[in-house]
């Protein structure tokens, strides 16, 4: 038997497949956002079955909730395949480990989804479900980026802090969405996260004028974060303006879902930047 670290060779198809799973994860996040924004989370009162069947009547809010469950199942299967593929082909142990952590996360997320249905969306579980989804997307991004890294380097402090701040914003945003907290902490968090993102992004841009592999995620991160501020304002205003509406209005739904999706993408960009490293910058081991 040879050394498995030597015989394993990551192929281009494994990386493409990882990116595909990450894209599917983003679609799953969007599907989850549509469920919450359309107030459809409890349109299917049972779990794991739906209306006592494998396929429920597809009408009204059931379309969103059941669609989210199907997407979650698909992503869980894709995630298991990815973990096995990484186990077989990926030479670095820490990337293989991330694959299995992702499987554990998506299974825990599925269990949390079941808890939400069976216990009628308790607020802490609803917030945890939103945050774990974000964390899962971050893991998928880390797996994609990790396969492209030559070595496991030190993680730069500023992009790491930006990623942590953006994740904290997910927690605060989910708390606002599920009526567990006021808007003010989320606004203050947005200011802090924006400063950290600007600091991290500009440092990368100024110290790496030639390296497009670092400049690209930095520019994506900055663009997404600024877009996110306006989407957040739009989501809030649309919610306030349609507060008297008898049902969720499309403008509110789409602005809120876009806010959730771009938040995930910004977090993913910060994870990418933290993973890729910034030579010369402060770093943690």
């Amino acid at each position: 038997m040879g050394n498995p670290e030597r015989t394993r060779k990551p192929g281009v198809w494994l990386h493409r497949y990882s990116v595909f799973v990450a894209c599917c994860t983003l679609l799953l996040v969007i599907a989850g956002g549509l469920v919450t924004s359309n107030d459809a989370a409890l349109s299917v009162p049972d779990w794991p079955l739906a209306w006592g069947k494998l396929i429920p009547p597809l009408e009204g809010g059931i379309v969103y909730e059941f669609g989210h469950r199907v997407a979650a199942l698909a992503v869980a299967i894709l995630s298991v395949i990815l973990a096995f593929w990484l186990q077989k082909r990926e030479p670095r142990a820490w990337v293989r480990r991330l694959g299995w952590i992702a499987v554990g996360t998506v299974l825990a997320q599925a269990a949390l989804g079941g808890v939400l249905v069976r216990y009628l969306t308790p607020k802490p579980a609803s917030i945890a479900h939103a945050c774990l989804g974000q964390l899962y997307f971050g893991l998928m991004v880390a797996i994609c980026v990790g396969q492209r890294k030559a070595t496991q380097e030190r993680i730069p402090v500023l992009p790491l802090m930006a990623a942590i701040a953006l994740f904290a914003q997910t927690i605060l945003g989910a708390a606002v969405r599920h009526n567990a907290a006021g808007l003010l902490p989320h606004i203050i968090g947005a200011a802090v996260a924006t400063i950290l993102v600007m600091w991290a992004g500009l440092q990368v841009l100024m110290t790496n004028t030639e390296d497009i592999n670092l400049r690209r995620p930095a520019m994506v991160l900055l663009s997404l974060t600024f877009s996110q501020i306006f989407l957040g304002m739009g989501a809030y205003l649309s919610r306030a303006m349609t507060a008297d509406a008898p049902q969720p209005m499309p403008a509110m739904v789409w602005l809120t879902v876009a806010h959730v999706a771009v938040g995930s993408l910004a977090f993913g960009a910060a994870v990418s930047l933290a993973m890729l490293g910034t030579p010369g910058g402060m770093a943690v081991a």
């Binding site: 293989r96 299995w100 952590i101 554990g104 299974l107 269990a111």
Partner: peptide
Amino acid sequence: KIWIGVGVAAILSLVGCGGDKP
């Protein structure tokens, strides 16, 4: 350790099956 982690996650996913009707 990986398999232990997967096992724990699987048990967690079954927790949701534990109740009867709402």
